[in-house]
Design a protein around this nucleic acid. Structure first.
Lengths: 148, 148
DNA sequence: CTTGACCTTCCCATGATTGGAAGGATTACA
DNA sequence: TGTAATCCTTCCAATCATGGGAAGGTCAAG
């Protein structure tokens, strides 16, 4: 199977397959006489594994660890779980960050008429010298808004 | 005021100030005879505006638009609001993505003993051929985000 | 034998930010 | 005044995962 076929079968683009090979995430493949890479079903299986891990937001580095644990029949499941939970922590931190941004911004936007007049609490807030009034997601009050 | 001072006063690093200048987000400053950049309080105010917009996750491109609207006394507040709401949409899409990842992963991790034995549902799932079982959590956390 | 669809390698770009090197300017202090 | 520390300057590189594209070789079908 050539790289295009492996890409279609695994959901990983040919570009990325070459990249993963170049950084050592996957081993170098057999080549045809003409230099074409050749992939087995097992290779495609590994690529699909990688694809799924990417879909869950794991970094390439973490995926390398996951693949090596996957291959290791003597692995301890706690090692896998540790990677997963660590990543969950990162994701949740990121989610909280974005939620703070979104809710702050939504509150600002709600207080902006959104008409053709220039008055705008969003700009006022950005131009203000005071700390940004972060709306924690549990806090639905508009207390800190100026010009509302 | 030199760049270090402006950086400290605005919360934007000297590196980033130079970068913002290089991409045209802020105009080129006056220089001393020795070539040192010189900043006014007004410049610092603009930098702080930029800093706040970055803290809310706006892209540099959006910030350029926001700054120009900020400067424009004839602006229509709907133009500002449109940028803000567009960004809220992007943030919320991102949040949903991350939440799906986190909840899928947490679910998998909950079913992994996390001991020294090799059996591991997380790896099994990654190695599976079936579609990833996304744990859609369109529940309390989610509606808290848009419900406000 | 040509055409089109592959494949190869190599370089570049993204976005925002940081790091660092080489070298000049300024400042503080003895 | 000398000198050392701390600034400033520009330029280049790296991050992370991915895509775009060029130049050129290969392969299969018509």
């Amino acid at each position: 199977m050539n790289i295009g076929h492996a890409a279609a079968a695994s959901g990983v683009s040919a570009k990325m397959i070459r990249y993963y090979e170049s950084i050592g995430l996957i081993p170098k493949t057999v080549r045809t006489e003409a230099g074409y890479r050749v992939y087995s079903d097992q290779d495609v299986h590994t690529l699909r594994f990688i694809r799924r891990a990417r879909d869950l937001g794991f970094s390439v580095e973490q995926i390398a660890d996951l693949v090596s644990l996957w291959r290791d029949r003597e692995r301890a499941s706690k090692d896998v779980k540790a990677i997963a939970l660590d990543h969950v922590g990162v994701l949740e931190r990121k989610i909280r960050e974005l939620q703070e941004m979104a809710s702050t911004l939504k509150h600002l936007a709600e207080n902006c008429c959104g008409d053709s007049r220039p008055h705008c609490p969003i700009l006022e807030e950005l131009a203000s010298e005071e700390p940004l009034p972060v709306q924690s997601k549990a806090d639905a009050r508009f207390s800190a808004l100026r010009g509302a």
